[in-house]
Design a protein around this nucleic acid. Structure first.
Lengths: 185, 185
DNA sequence: ATGGGCATGTAAGCGGTTACATGATTAT
DNA sequence: ATAATCATGTAACCGCTTACATGCCCAT
């Protein structure tokens, strides 16, 4: 899932400038990546060179020039082709769900830790996921109020359910580890 | 979550050679990445240069030399430090769950597709996730039989639950899109 | 006047992918 | 024979991160 597609998607909805796109990706729900300026501007430059976007230099009466970005017909074509293609819908890695939650990979090796230490880690995870679920739940009403795109609303609600799943899973894990700790003592 | 940690983890359990590690990462449950030779051997070379592993050249009576890899004390230390640290347990990206399921990012832009086309995509996803759930469920009994590490068993069971979550979510989405199709006609 | 947000960039490096190359062993 | 699998590597490239650099605008 490359940044390029997200940028094309956003720009096919509205023209904008680099910084604004970044804010949108960071804050507006439905776009989910953390983004750094480095990649953003280099990617935009590349996209311009390939004729997917154009820059309109806007010189305000006051202040420095801003560059307003527009998607070109070619850019729109590339975006639509991607949308209609099955790229990023395929099999990918068998255990893809682990990618979204790196703690699971670490869990794979938790056997090498003392049960008490492992338990600590699991508890910290638990509170982090609870926090995350709350964050999502706080975002939801605002999105509903301003009638955000229903697809994005759904994605958020999936996120909430997913956090709940993780929370229950971590609770079970913690319970078992606690038992193990007792047995060891 | 870098390959390095996984390799250190595996080698701290057993010595082995490159190809075997790759197979283990690919097939044995609990290790979840698809891996390509390119990265594997270059990473192993780097790790050797840094003194994390050592190669023992094993020359069989017949055939070419094989390189058996052993973890060094230093390597074990690095691995344990990582295990005890909170690396890969932290916040990361806010919407991390989307990372593990790139189709969701695509969903963000599904509004740009005709409902009928979007429905097609969702249905294909649905059958893919059903397939995936089945695959996981087929793997489970074998793991239980050979008494695999309980952490890995748990991870797999989380995976099954996660696929079930996705399936229900996709079903709802499909239902709504079907409705939209009807209304449009 | 100072700090925070707006806005645009460059450079180095890392982790990972894709593709290529080689050769031996084992199974059909 | 030949195809599949075992086994080890190299080279080019890509997407992304980290860190740095610059300068304007606005509110306190």
């Amino acid at each position: 899932m490359s940044l390029r597609h997200i940028l094309l998607g956003l720009l096919s909805e509205n023209s904008g400038h680099g910084y604004g796109l970044r804010k949108e990706i960071l804050h507006r729900l439905g776009h989910f990546r953390n983004i750094n300026e480095g990649q953003l501007y280099t990617e935009l430059a590349k996209m311009e060179k390939e004729g997917l976007i154009e820059r309109e230099v806007v010189v305000p009466e006051k202040g420095p020039a801003r560059k307003l970005l527009h998607i070109t017909a070619r850019g729109k074509g590339v975006f639509q082709d991607w949308l209609e293609s099955d790229e990023h819908e395929g099999e990918g890695v068998l255990y893809d769900f682990v990618h979204g939650y790196p703690f699971l990979t670490k869990c794979t090796f938790l056997q090498h830790l003392a049960p008490a230490e492992a338990l600590d880690k699991v508890r910290i995870q638990l509170s982090r996921m609870e926090r995350k679920r709350e964050t999502y739940q706080e975002i939801l009403p605002g999105m509903e109020r301003r009638k955000a795109d229903p697809f994005r609303l759904r994605i958020l609600s999936l996120g909430i359910q997913e956090m709940e799943l993780r929370i229950e899973w971590l609770k079970e894990l913690a319970r078992d580890l606690k038992q193990e700790c007792k047995e060891a003592s």
